[in-house]
């Protein structure tokens, strides 16, 4: 992988007089590696009949650094899952380019781990087989299993699978169960472990906890945050739950449309870095509520209807970023609308 290359390795093939060029090359490689995900001027639209088109996303540009926990927020239909599918390579943008880990995304591959909301596990495989599938498939494709080294590798992967299982708070006795024998929460724990088994530096999660009850959801959010803290992969997490976004993310990106018109796609309405991350109502009280109010106002098109004589959250988070200065919890990278 590019990011793991040392300077001598990179400069080895360059002529001596090209030192400056080598330094520049190293700088470029490092800059590229630091930008885990790069979205450049991406627009997506679909044909509606002969002439009309429906715009889903419009001129989205984002740079996501390695190790960031980015949460994509927005109303249903605002295009956040579409954006995630493009990061995966499942869909292609109508315009613009997307790069993950330094190279352009053109098809689904193993650069990113993926945890969807549903069907996250293969129903015909036990939990253990689900966990082992990635590493084994990666090294031994369909006929590769005939190689003698397969069984040794399988043993090692099996041990790692049990370690991941324990890490996710599951019992060793769950290893032999099929996905339908697990609760929704357990299934998503296994799905996260399955993605982690591949040791990807990028993890894409599409409404991964949306179908769970609040208590299970809470425990999985804590688990995910602790897993992220340990290994710091780049995570892009799609949700429509603002509280979840504030708890999980170190950066919250809100996508919203300016109007209901088909020709008008979603843009980045708010791009906000949380200084600490992990905000909850209990830990941050009123500031948390203010932020939720602000984000929801932005995702609803920036209009607050019940002002009750108070300054709106939008006003407070306006040009002078008053709220940011006051509570010291977050600062806004930019409000593009």
């Amino acid at each position: 992988m590019v990011s793991s290359m040392s300077t001598p390795e990179i400069t080895a093939g360059l002529p001596l007089f090209g030192e400056e060029r080598a330094v520049r090359a190293v700088a470029e490689v490092e800059a590229q590696a630091a930008k885990s995900i790069s979205i450049e001027d991406v627009s997506v639209s679909y044909a509606l009949g002969r002439a009309a088109r429906r715009s889903v996303l419009e001129n989205i540009s984002l740079e996501i650094e390695e190790g960031e926990f980015v949460v994509l927020l927005g109303e249903t239909g605002c295009g956040k899952s579409t954006l995630l599918r493009m990061l995966l390579g499942q869909e292609r943008p109508t315009e613009g380019t997307i790069s993950v880990a330094g190279s352009k995304v053109e098809r689904v591959d193993a650069r990113s781990g993926y945890v969807p909301q549903r069907y996250s596990l293969f129903p015909d495989r036990t939990v253990l087989d689900n966990l082992m599938m990635g590493p084994l498939t990666s090294n031994y494709h369909i006929l590769g299993r005939l190689r003698p080294s397969f069984w040794g590798a399988r043993r090692a992967v099996r041990e790692e699978a049990f370690r991941q299982l324990a890490h996710m708070g599951l019992q060793a006795s769950d290893a032999g169960k099929y996905p339908h024998q697990l609760s929704g929460g357990m299934q998503q724990r296994v799905a996260i472990a399955q993605a982690l088994m591949m040791k990807n530096r990028v993890l894409l999660m599409d409404e991964a906890f949306s179908a769970l009850d609040p208590s299970t959801r809470g425990s999985l959010q804590r688990l995910l945050r602790s897993v992220w803290s340990e290994t710091r992969p780049t995570v892009v997490f799609v949700t429509h739950n603002t509280a979840e976004a504030l708890f999980l993310g170190t950066r919250v990106i809100v996508l919203a449309r300016e109007s209901k018109d088909d020709a008008c796609g979603s843009r980045v309405a708010l791009d906000m870095k949380l200084a600490e991350g992990g905000m909850t109502l209990r830990s941050h009280g009123q500031e948390f509520l203010d932020l939720v109010e602000h984000i929801e106002a932005v995702s609803n098109g920036g209009r607050l209807t019940d002002l009750s004589g108070r300054r709106t959250a939008l006003d407070r988070c306006g040009e002078d970023s008053g709220l940011a200065g006051r509570v010291g919890v977050f600062h806004e990278v930019g409000e593009t609308r």
Binding site: L88, P116, G134
Partner: peptide, 24 residues
Amino acid sequence: EQIVKAFTLDANNFDVAYRVVFRQ
């Protein structure tokens, strides 16, 4: 989702066809 997931687990086209879809 299953097909996408398999590709993210580094499955190739034939892995997806025979070890994911056909089995299911």
